[in-house]
Write a protein that binds this DNA or RNA. Sequence first.
DNA 1: TGTTAGCACTCGAATATATTGAGTGCTAAC
DNA 2: GTTAGCACTCAATATATTCGAGTGCTAACA
Lengths: 341, 341
Amino acid sequence: MELSERKMKILRAIVRNYLESGEPVGSRTISKYTDLNLSSATIRNEMADLEEMGYIVQPHTSAGRIPTDAGYRVYVDTMMAEKDKEVEELKSNLLEKEERLDQLLKQTAKLLAVNTNYASMVSAPSINRNKLKLIQLSRVNEDQLLAVIVIEGNVIKNTLLDISDEISEETLLKLNILLNTHLTGLSIEDINLGIISSLKKQAGIHSDIVSDVIDAVARAIHDEEDLEIYTSGTNNIFKYPELTGDGVASELIGAFEEKQALNELVVKTLSETENTGIQVYIGNESPVETMKDCSIVTATYDLGEGMKGTIGIIGPKRMDYEKVVDNLKDVMRQLDSIYKK
Amino acid sequence: MELSERKMKILRAIVRNYLESGEPVGSRTISKYTDLNLSSATIRNEMADLEEMGYIVQPHTSAGRIPTDAGYRVYVDTMMAEKDKEVEELKSNLLEKEERLDQLLKQTAKLLAVNTNYASMVSAPSINRNKLKLIQLSRVNEDQLLAVIVIEGNVIKNTLLDISDEISEETLLKLNILLNTHLTGLSIEDINLGIISSLKKQAGIHSDIVSDVIDAVARAIHDEEDLEIYTSGTNNIFKYPELTGDGVASELIGAFEEKQALNELVVKTLSETENTGIQVYIGNESPVETMKDCSIVTATYDLGEGMKGTIGIIGPKRMDYEKVVDNLKDVMRQLDSIYKK
DNA sequence: TGTTAGCACTCGAATATATTGAGTGCTAAC
DNA sequence: GTTAGCACTCAATATATTCGAGTGCTAACA
């Protein structure tokens, strides 16, 4: 059977109505709601077809219809298509300019949550491809060094290094110069064994410190530390009864706290999304098991130089996709413009 | 009316029973539960008295009794008195030794949450009284400096400073030396106007940078940034139906996310608690409005040198006070021993 | 052939009604 | 002072009743 123009219109009307009310929607409602003047009976016939095609279901006999995941899917897809053509003209809710990226992202998460009334998450950009801007060793104690590592985008990482041998102020200075002259401007991938061994050679008796620093750089950048994900508005899920039943809420809250699941989401998104697109996961399409009752809309932001990160909105399946997509696009644009100052 | 020994025993039996079951407890149960052999009828008489005295209530006629806040209070107080005499002998659930305080505290929060099945929070120590260990300025861009500030306990703060004038590698070095020789070892309070103006004088044309740095130090230490509070196990509250009704859960989760309320809790606790005591807030006693349906047990840890922070467990009023107190004491001891390494 | 009015039917939700049982207070007897 | 016994209360549970939104189907109409 084919999805005629009329069926399409009816389907969209059903979805839209359901988004607002959260209640199953019946034929009579649609017969009034749409501009095509049809009686409820005709709508019923069409609805029967749509059900057969798998776009809508009745929660039980003699109830109205609600969209299936597939139903949402076509809704989202057509909507997105229209969105692309549309000229975006949004009230800018200006993110404050922030020196530090982490603060900025935290703010972004909050802004999105407040604006959409859903839960939001923002991942710090993966910095694998990123260039070192500065390495700075300083003495903290007799037996500890502080290594500060600054990466493109002013992401700052601190690590403490234990040292065995006494080390003079002067050699420390030399080490700093050595490290910075050789490593600054390199990306992680650029730091190969050749460079490392050359460095060690030049460091002489302090080659072990060089190893430690390199380790620290690698760790600082790779480790689960870059599981830095900012969340906001998790308690918004309580606004949607369908997410509150049973242990659902608990699981969700847990996922947001642990952040482990969110990280999977980020990884998946980054690998799946071509360029800076917007991705919509509906129900079971979700990469994360715990969120199979939700819809997730993600956007990939790209600050250039490989600094990509993910922004996500998590809400009920009947979320206002339109608003969410608009918001995401807006935020992406703002991030762009801030960075390109 | 007086709270006789027997009444006391009965009250404690009621509380303990209710802690486990969460159900109102009746006279028959108690008549079997206690060692004093009394019939349910006698217990009923005593219970009537206890009710009159305000220690227990019936949620409705013909239901068992549940403890009032006052009831919990005497239970907790007597229990705590016993605890103090008791020799503590707990299986140590070893916190891993961590270089960085923030990691350690994060871990502490998690440990407590897992162990107790309640929500936990750990505040980073207030560092007002604390001594500077290191200040390190480094160039990041042509127009930005990175100021790294390390405080006693290896708490590390980073700030970016905008600079207007070009500044040479050499003067930067001089500034570093100047700042460190004069400021290291001082607590915030020690840095007075005299020192500041003397520093500025010596810095000559770069006195504005000195101001900036001092500002940064003050900000890094004072600001809402030290609203650093680590939470864990927030979803544990779903294990207790009495915290799930209505918007309660939502409010709680929100409070944990915002951390503003938790901060109030910390402030209040620090000011109220004499020394490193354990404080129990039951229901309405809570300093935080949102948690008036909960009980909160807090402990103040003291790492010496004015580094005080608060650890808190938030759960239902019928929480296992005994276990919670034990756990807190245990964790406090472990924190102590780690720091005194 | 597509559209529509009409009607019998379904079934969840809401409401009302009965049943159960844990628990109480009171009284009278030990 | 303690206890057995009994009438009473009331939430919780189960059961029955009603209500109405919504459906599918049929027959008639354009």
